[in-house]
Computed example of a mutant assay.
Amino acid sequence: MDVWISPVKDIVVALAAIIGSGVALIGLSTWRRQLEGTAEYELARRLLKEVYQFREALQSVRFPFIAVKEMELSDDEGPAPVNDKDRRHRELAKAYQNRYDRVYDARNALEATLLEVEVLWGAELVEKVRKLYSWDAELYAAIMEHLDTVISDAPNGGRNLADRQRTREIINSRGNRKEDKFLSGLQGDIQEIERNLKPHLKRRV
């Protein structure tokens, strides 16, 4: 009887090893899926949060009320203004520059994250996110036009009513979002990004 025990024992041990290896491989595969799913979820969540922060940074620049404190000129900021126009121009420029610091921080954070996005999901999504920068460029150009109008000696800054109205609509946010064309356009581009990220915001199990 002992003659049979050894071969049977070897077979049982071999089968146990095979079964154990199979279970281990299944477990490893599941773990890898969970790890990949978690990494993609966290990256998608972080990217979307930074996109929203960029939007809010632009909106903070567009806030129509500028406090006196935002425009205060210090003694170490060059010579004293030569006239009221010069003072107004420099005060507004300082206020907008301070507000734009938040935009620069938001863009820098986005750019760092986009390196990871390109590795995982390719350049197409990266380009959709960078499309948002065109709104930054439009806002910045409108602010420069407004500052030129303030300092200009020409009536109305040498610009017609339609141009001045368009500039005001860009640089000043509105209480009613539906009437805010700048924000509506920006939000439209963000919604496209949201659609791309939606599949990655579901954790894999």
Rank of each mutant, 00 (worst) to 15 (best):
G188M: 02
V117E: 00
Y100Q: 08
L132Y: 03
A93S: 10
T167L: 03
Y140I: 13
K131N: 14
I190Y: 03
G157R: 04
N108T: 08
D101N: 10
E91I: 02
E70W: 07
N172D: 08
L161M: 13
Q187D: 15
L120T: 05
E91F: 03
A93F: 05
I143E: 08
Q187P: 02
R168L: 08
K198G: 01
L161T: 11
S74V: 09
D153E: 10
L201N: 02
G158Q: 10
L186A: 05
T113A: 06
I193Y: 02
Q97R: 15
R130D: 01
Q165E: 15
N196S: 14
E116R: 12
V117H: 00
I171L: 03
A93T: 10
R177S: 08
I151F: 03
R102S: 13
R102T: 15
R203V: 13
V119H: 09
D189I: 02
G122W: 00
A93Q: 10
R168D: 12
R90T: 09
E145T: 15
A141M: 09
G158P: 00
D153V: 03
R164A: 06
A112I: 13
K131P: 02
M144F: 10
K69W: 15
S134C: 02
E194Q: 15
P79E: 09
K69E: 13
G185F: 03
R177N: 11
K181C: 03
V129G: 13
K131D: 13
I190M: 11
W135R: 04
A162Y: 06
E72R: 12
L125M: 07
M144V: 13
R102E: 09
E194C: 05
Y96Q: 08
Y96C: 01
Q97E: 07
K128V: 04
V82M: 11
A80P: 09
D163T: 04
G188D: 04
Y104P: 00
N108K: 08
I171M: 04
N98Q: 15
R195E: 12
K181R: 10
L73Q: 02
Y104I: 10
K128D: 12
H89T: 07
Q187R: 08
E138G: 04
D105Q: 14
N176H: 05
Y100N: 12
N176L: 01
L115P: 00
K85L: 12
H146W: 07
R203N: 03
P81S: 14
K69M: 13
E194D: 11
G185T: 00
R168F: 11
Q191A: 14
R195N: 09
N196H: 11
D75A: 15
L73R: 09
Q191V: 09
G78H: 05
L125Y: 06
N160L: 00
E118W: 01
R166F: 02
L125W: 04
G78M: 05
K94W: 05
Y104Q: 13
K85I: 06
E169W: 07
E118M: 09
A112L: 07
